[in-house]
Amino acid sequence: MGIDLSGYYQLVSQENMEAYLAALDINIALRKIVCLLRPDKEIIQNGNRMVIRTLTTFRNYVMDFPLDEEFEEDLSAVDGRKCRTTVRWEGDYLVCIQNGEKANRGWKHWLEGDLLHLEMTVEGVICKQIFKKVK
């Protein structure tokens, strides 16, 4: 099992979000809105189960999942798709693989001090976000 990511985090920076959303076929109006948002993240680890909440003034997204088990993820709130998702620890990295319509889709989280890093990928496009732990 990896490190404990539990906590509440606020966005510090992000790069390449517009290109990432375009690769997901998100329309331009919604891309502009999403790029203006400053999401918070709350992560709760409880044994082999995790909850990751991405919270914004526009829309919230909650992932509640078991580690190391494939599950159907409903991404309709994000891009209207469903995929087969597996999340597992690779050392100190929490790695998510999302198998579906889009190739090479997934993300990884890791900590550096009190900074939570998130790297999201789809079809060769990478978006990076950094969050600071506030509680």
Rank of each mutant, 00 (worst) to 15 (best):
L5V: 04
D64R: 03
K102F: 11
H117Y: 13
K132L: 13
Q129W: 06
T57L: 10
K135H: 14
I44L: 11
N60A: 04
T56K: 03
E72L: 01
G113F: 01
D74W: 03
E90M: 11
L75H: 10
Q98C: 00
N104C: 14
L5T: 06
T56M: 03
G80R: 05
V134Y: 15
E73P: 03
T85Y: 01
E119N: 08
V34D: 08
I130E: 12
G124V: 11
L11W: 01
W107I: 00
E18N: 11
V12L: 09
I97P: 09
R81V: 06
R105V: 04
L5W: 11
G106C: 06
T54S: 12
V95R: 15
V12P: 00
K133G: 13
V51P: 00
R31Y: 08
E72W: 02
I3G: 02
T86H: 04
I33H: 05
H117K: 15
V87T: 12
C127M: 08
L118P: 10
T54A: 07
K108N: 07
L116V: 11
L11H: 06
E72F: 02
E123N: 08
E112L: 10
Y61G: 03
D114L: 04
W110S: 13
V122W: 05
Y20V: 02
Q14R: 11
L75C: 14
E42A: 10
I28N: 08
D79I: 07
L37D: 02
G113M: 04
K41D: 00
K128Q: 14
V62Y: 04
V78D: 07
G113Q: 02
T54M: 09
A29L: 14
V34Y: 01
D74V: 05
L36F: 11
K102L: 15
T54H: 03
K133M: 14
E70T: 06
D40P: 05
Y9T: 11
F71E: 02
D25S: 13
V78H: 09
